[in-house]
């Protein structure tokens, strides 16, 4: 990481009131994001997606977001009024969701959708927006941008749809891309292509990427740094290449519970959840490593 972080988050909490009392989906998450690929891994309910949504101000009431700090380039973005948040969302921070089927407008051709996303944030004339849309479609390795420009979402395959989503999200040239399980709905062969495109874009444009996934192996290969979340908290943080040498019993348990092609076992190891993972103090060395600390 060089220079000041793009995004700096301290003690992020997301709380939902329920009949049984308050439910904390995210409990004190802290991290800095530079121009890097940051993986956020965890199982369903770990709060990984909610963390992404909280950054974008997409937590719906009665959900509540609090944080000691949530800065984008040094500017606080926590609980901004919706009008100002809209300018940031899509413009400076973009999000790619799991399934393009639900993210693209089904009654609008994909080209105009990309143009609209671009003009909303960058302004400019139709001609410029159109050129930009075609350029973005080409950038996500679509061979025939002119043809795809005029297609409706139902006329494209899942992998193509996800590339179009990425093109749309990248059109306004955001500083940060949050990708929530961007390849989980895709077949492995298509997945590789989409990952290669995201990899190249992040590298070439110097963006920060938050890659939310349940797939440990994928994150280990794709990201620079990994946060492992459990029950709303970050239980371990480590460089992606060291993921297989993780120390925390939860991370270890997740890794061991995966069947592997290269290491046959008769029975898979089963994760024994321990209550203190929910409450134990966060590894002090990890907190100290953060510039600015917790306070």
């Amino acid at each position: 990481m060089t220079g000041a972080p793009l995004l700096s988050i301290r003690d992020l909490c997301v709380t939902f009131p329920t009949r049984q009392g308050e439910f904390q989906a995210v409990r004190g998450v802290s991290f800095d994001l530079g121009r890097e690929r940051l993986g956020v891994v965890g199982e369903s309910g770990s709060g990984k997606s909610m963390t992404g949504r909280a950054i974008l101000g997409l937590v719906r009431p009665p959900g509540r977001v609090t944080a000691a700090r949530m800065d984008l380039d040094g500017q606080p973005i926590l609980n901004l009024p919706e009008r100002r948040m809209r300018a940031i969302r899509g413009g400076r921070i973009s999000m790619v969701m799991q399934d393009p089927k639900f993210s693209l407008n089904p009654v609008m051709r994909v080209g105009p959708q990309i143009m609209e996303a671009y003009r909303l944030h960058a302004g400019g004339g139709r001609a410029a927006a159109r050129a930009r849309a075609l350029e973005m479609l080409a950038a996500v390795q679509i061979r025939d941008p002119e043809r795809v420009f005029g297609l409706y979402p139902h006329e494209v395959s899942g992998g193509m749809g996800q590339r179009i989503m990425i093109a749309m999200m990248l059109a306004p040239d955001p500083e940060i891309l949050i990708a929530d399980e961007p390849t989980s709905a895709l077949d492995v062969s298509v997945r590789a292509e989409v990952l290669n495109i995201m990899d190249a874009l992040v590298r070439d444009r110097g963006m920060g990427l938050i890659f939310i996934s349940h797939d440990l192996n994928l994150v280990a290969q794709f990201c620079d740094r990994v946060l492992i979340m459990y029950a709303g908290r970050v239980v371990e943080e480590l460089p992606a290449r060291d993921l297989h040498a993780a120390r925390h019993p939860y991370t270890r348990g997740l890794l061991d519970s995966l069947p592997r092609l290269d290491a046959p076992v008769d029975r898979l190891a089963v994760l024994e959840r321990q209550d203190d993972w929910r409450t134990e103090a966060i590894d002090a060395s990890m907190v100290d490593a953060l510039p600015g600390g917790l306070r």
């Binding site: 199982e43 369903s44 349940h214 440990l216 348990g253 997740l254 519970s257 995966l258 069947p259 008769d266 029975r267 898979l268 190891a269 089963v270 994760l271």
Partner: peptide, 14 residues
């Protein structure tokens, strides 16, 4: 299912 749950179910099936 989540991977840890997957392990449990696969063990059960075995």
């Amino acid at each position: 299912l989540d991977v840890s749950v997957q392990a449990e179910i696969l063990n059960l099936l075995k």
